[in-house]
């Protein structure tokens, strides 16, 4: 049994209360969502907050809904809810495809969208999904709320725009009629973090790509996205040749590190291969194939 250091624990009663508690306890406090990233780190004593502020009671942070032309996910929506949501599936296949390969059912039952975003692990799958779909997050503090595009959200590994005394409340994604989307992941074993994942949405109209988003994780893609590859595709036919060239551009913009999941050259290759596969399927699905 791995044993964390002593820690205090309090259950927040509302978002405002959670923010007040964060301000009261300063940088030694941590929000506790699903706990699937935080608790393992505490058990290994890599994280040792003095107090945990549990936000699991906050129903205001739950639920998946459509608001105008956006999909809105509360921060406490779990992976399992994303996986099985008919609303999300109706608009984007990428959610289901990504969630199917994130962790395992135990982690998915508790782990949350907000926790995943705020953990900001450089291999986080939902970060690639969020970057591909060009979503945004809503951050609240004692003075109010602000919206930050996901492609500006990450400050670096494990660092985000969420500052002390702040809480992420929502993740939002624009709805794009006729967009096809797909997610591709290579893992060493089911439930493992990705060696590389790539996700994409594509809108094909009049035989050309009119809108596209590409997200990549675990391969050192800045802000988990590949804007040059996207720009290259706009206005071009979704031919195998064009998709491959875009995938290569995406891979070229990555700078993966070697680790036990694989050497850098392999990861770079995967960035190309998986981007290509995601683009192919997304484009085909946009064209109703």
């Amino acid at each position: 049994m791995q044993t964390p250091a002593a820690v205090d624990y309090v259950r927040a009663t509302s978002v405002a209360n959670a923010i007040a508690l964060l301000n009261e306890h300063g940088e030694d406090a941590r929000l506790l969502a699903g706990g699937h990233s935080l608790l393992p780190m505490m058990k290994l004593r890599l994280a040792r907050p003095d107090i945990l502020i549990d936000i699991n009671d906050l129903d205001e942070l739950r639920g998946i809904r459509v608001e105008g032309d956006e999909l809105v996910l509360g921060a406490m929506v779990t992976h399992a809810e994303v996986l099985s949501s008919p609303i999300l599936a109706e608009h984007y296949a990428i959610f289901r495809e990504a969630e199917k390969v994130i962790a395992d059912p135990i982690v998915r039952n508790k782990g949350t969208v907000g926790g995943s975003m705020c953990q900001a692990d450089p291999s986080e799958d939902l970060s690639a999904v969020g970057a591909a779909l060009k979503g945004s997050v809503v951050i609240q503090n004692a003075t109010g709320t602000r919206t930050v595009p996901l492609r500006e959200f990450h400050e670096g590994p494990y660092e985000t725009k969420v500052a002390d005394g702040e809480i992420l409340t929502e993740v939002r994604f624009p709805i794009r009629p006729r967009a096809g989307s797909a997610y591709e992941k290579v893992e060493r074993r089911v439930g493992d973090w990705p060696v590389c994942s790539a996700g994409a949405y594509v809108v094909v109209s009049g035989g050309v790509v009119t809108d596209v988003g590409i997200g990549l994780t675990a391969v050192g893609a800045e802000h988990f996205c590949a804007p040059e590859a996207e720009a290259f595709l706009i206005g071009k036919a979704p031919s195998e040749e064009n998709l491959a060239a875009a995938a290569q551009l995406a891979a070229d913009s990555c700078s993966p590190n070697a680790d036990q999941r694989g050497p850098a050259d392999y990861k770079q290759h995967l960035a190309m291969e998986l981007t290509l596969r995601a683009l192919r399927r997304a484009a085909a699905s946009s064209q109703g194939a």
Partner: peptide, 21 residues
């Protein structure tokens, strides 16, 4: 692993007992 199989296909086998480079 996927990486080792891919490397083998590339004709570049790696030593698996040491850290991946």
């Amino acid at each position: 692993t996927p990486a080792n199989v891919w490397r083998a296909i590339q004709g570049r086998n790696v030593r698996t007992d040491m850290a991946v480079e």
